[in-house]
Every structure is written in structure tokens, then in C-alpha cells.
Design a protein around this nucleic acid. Structure first.
Lengths: 193, 193
DNA sequence: CCAAGGTCGAACCGATCGGTACGATCTGAG
DNA sequence: CTCAGATCGTACCGATCGGTTCGACCTTGG
């Protein structure tokens, strides 16, 4: 490791561990629902360490949102890819994956949307917008492969179903939300090609 | 006015005025984005008055969310009713009304969803759930009048489109979100009957 | 073995938070 | 006119906030 300059106790791993644990706690409690002191206690880390790695609570929040967006996007894309080449199968796989998420007891809605609802900070809003854009790209690919007359319009409508299903699952009733959205998505896909 | 017991300066009107102004400010800044002191300044009211009428910041928040849910629901229902008896016209009217909302420069997404994303308080979450339920009732009526095979399923899918369009409009791009959602909704309506 | 630097824990900082207290002022019913 | 009560403005409270500092450990490259 030529780039590993002066370092002991592997700070990179410390940072990764903090990020990992903070993701879960901040998702459960909300960004402003827990102070830095209690957060550090739950993370098993001192305030000085946290501030050296992230500079600011905002810095930690942004780093964790970025990582979470990366992971969720990759996770959804992988689910679609594993379903084969048929766009209908890919769409089904996406909504099935969402349903599995909704059924998770810790499910509390989309972390990016929740964050954007609290912090009016521009950086956070930008991360959320980028997150939706990534979803849209994934859905646009499916719509194009399906031969939709207007793939961008269809993708946008599918994005609304994805986000709408997540909202309904989080705030009204998660049972079957993924399946119901999937059914609607397939109807739109059929009608658009 | 027989019920007007002992009162001067019409406290009822004071309360209504506070609620009115607080709705706008809390929507713009976020529930935790403004303190009670600054809030009172913007409202042109003293802290003592605010606390006498609402007891707590939480009390104010809940009262304003309830009122907002009432109004928004009535506003959407009125838009649907004014469109006549055809379910397709009613659905169109709903999404057209939403689009007008998205185009408002102060639009910041659904206030109830934003609130539920920040406050994990059970009361707030209950108000949000009731709000979605009201939307669902409105859409169920339309789905039933349209003769849908499974009106409850269709209504749920339409609800996802409504909420999804609102999320996309707030966090990605509001231009045309209402129209695109309306188009998808009409497709689902046609396919379900 | 030694020095550099990551980490800890706790004390500490000023600012702000939600909420209370109080005297002064104003309003309107009797 | 009088007096109850609504309102104001301000000072104040304890708690908590995000963030800093420091001395003591501990780990590890040289």
C-alpha cells in the first residue's frame, strides 16, 4: 500500500464503521432527532474522532446520504439485472425488491426524502435530487428496452409509482404496496408500447 | 352570540390568525427549522399568547396540520366535484389541481409528509395517516363510479400516483408532473374497468 | 524502543432551544 | 367608569445543541 502514508489503527476503517452505524441510527431517529453526544455514544466513538473524520454533523449526514444513495441504487439495479433481459421481468424484480424493503421492521420511508424534508440545506436537497435521477435512469433503461413510444414519459410515471408506493408503505400501509404498484407499472408498460 | 361567554379582543380570531400565519411559516421553514421566539416575531404575537392558545409548540403544529389536512382534502374534493359526474373528468380535475399546486413558487411538497418525516411523535404520524386515508377515500369514490373491477386496488394505485407526483415535483422536477401522472391515472382507470 | 498520531473521555464553550413569569397596556362587557 | 381578561415585551430559566480542547492512553511504522 504505497499511498498509506502515516497512519495507525486504520483511520479508514474507523470512518467506515462510523458511517455504517450512523446510517442506521440517523435513519431510525431522524437527522435532528439525535444529538452528536448521544450519537457518539451509540456509535461507540468519541466526539473528537467523529469531528476529525467528518468535520461537522452536516458533513457526516451528507457522507452517509451519499453512501446510502449509492447502495440503494446499486441494489435496485442489481435486482433488475438479475431478472434477465425482459423489461417486464426487470420491472417486477424492482417492485418485488421494494416490497421486501417495506416489510423490513425498520423501514421508515426513503432516507433521502426524509432528509430533504428536514434539512433545507442545498447540499442535502441536491443529493436527494440526484438519487431520484438515478432511479429515473434505471427506469428509463427499462422503458427503452420495452420499446415504449415515449420512454422518458413512461420512466417518469414509473418513478412516481416507485416513490408513491414508498410513501404509502411508510405512512399508510405497507402490506402489498409493492405488489399493487408493480401491477400498475406493468399496466402502464403494456399501454405504452 | 349566546355562546360568547367572557371574552375580549376576540381570542378565537387571534387563534385563527396565529394558525393561519404559522401554517405558511412552518411550511416554508420546516417544523424544527424555526424556534418559537422567531416564530412569534414573524407572527406578530407574543409567546404568552401563543402558549395560552396552543399550550405547546407541538400543540400548535398538530392544530395547524389538522387544519391543513382538512383544507387540502376539501379543496381536492371540490375540484373533483366541480368537474361533473364523469370519473375520468374528476380524475383529470384532481391532477390538474395538483399541477397548479406544484407550480406555486412556495410549493415544498406535502406538509403532512414533511412533518411525519421529522417528528416521530405518534400524533403527527396519525394525522398524516388520516390525511392519506382521506385521499384514498376520494379516489375510491372515483374508482367505484368508474366501475372498476377492484375499486380499492385501483384507488390505492391512484393514491401512489398522487403522492409520487407530489414527491417528484418537490424533489426532482415539477414541470408537467401533474399532467404525466394524470395520463398514467387515466390509463390505469381504462385498464381497470 | 521511540516518536507520531489515532482514539478516548470528560470538561468546557457560547448559542439556542422550549417554556415560564411578570408588570404594563389595551379592550370591551357590565 | 370600572374591572376582568387578552395581549405585549422582556427578562429569565434549565436543558440541550453543535463544536472545541486537553490530557491520558494505545497502536504501530521506523
Amino acid at each position: 500500500m504505497p499511498v498509506a502514508k502515516g497512519s495507525t489503527i486504520d483511520p479508514a476503517r474507523t470512518r467506515a464503521t462510523i458511517l455504517e452505524a450512523a446510517t442506521a441510527v440517523l435513519y431510525e431517529r431522524g437527522l435532528d432527532g439525535i444529538g452528536v453526544a448521544e450519537l457518539c455514544t451509540r456509535l461507540g466513538v468519541s466526539k473528537e474522532t467523529l469531528y476529525r473524520h467528518f468535520g461537522t454533523k452536516e458533513g457526516l449526514v451528507e457522507a452517509m446520504l451519499r453512501q446510502r444513495s449509492d447502495r440503494v441504487t446499486q441494489w435496485l439495479a442489481a435486482a433488475a439485472e438479475a431478472a434477465g433481459d425482459d423489461p417486464r421481468d426487470q420491472l417486477t424484480a424492482v417492485f418485488d425488491a421494494l416490497q421486501r424493503w417495506y416489510d423490513d421492521p425498520v423501514f421508515r420511508g426513503c432516507a433521502m426524502l426524509n432528509a430533504a424534508a428536514q434539512h433545507h440545506v442545498e447540499t442535502v436537497r441536491a443529493i436527494t435530487a440526484r438519487h431520484l435521477r438515478r432511479y429515473l435512469d434505471l427506469l428509463t433503461g427499462i422503458a427503452e428496452r420495452a420499446g415504449a413510444a415515449d420512454p422518458h414519459l413512461l420512466a417518469r410515471q414509473l418513478l412516481m409509482l416507485v416513490e408513491g408506493a414508498t410513501v404509502v408503505a411508510a405512512h399508510h400501509d405497507g402490506a402489498g404496496a409493492g405488489e399493487h404498484a408493480r401491477q400498475a407499472a406493468l399496466t402502464l408498460l403494456s399501454a405504452a408500447s
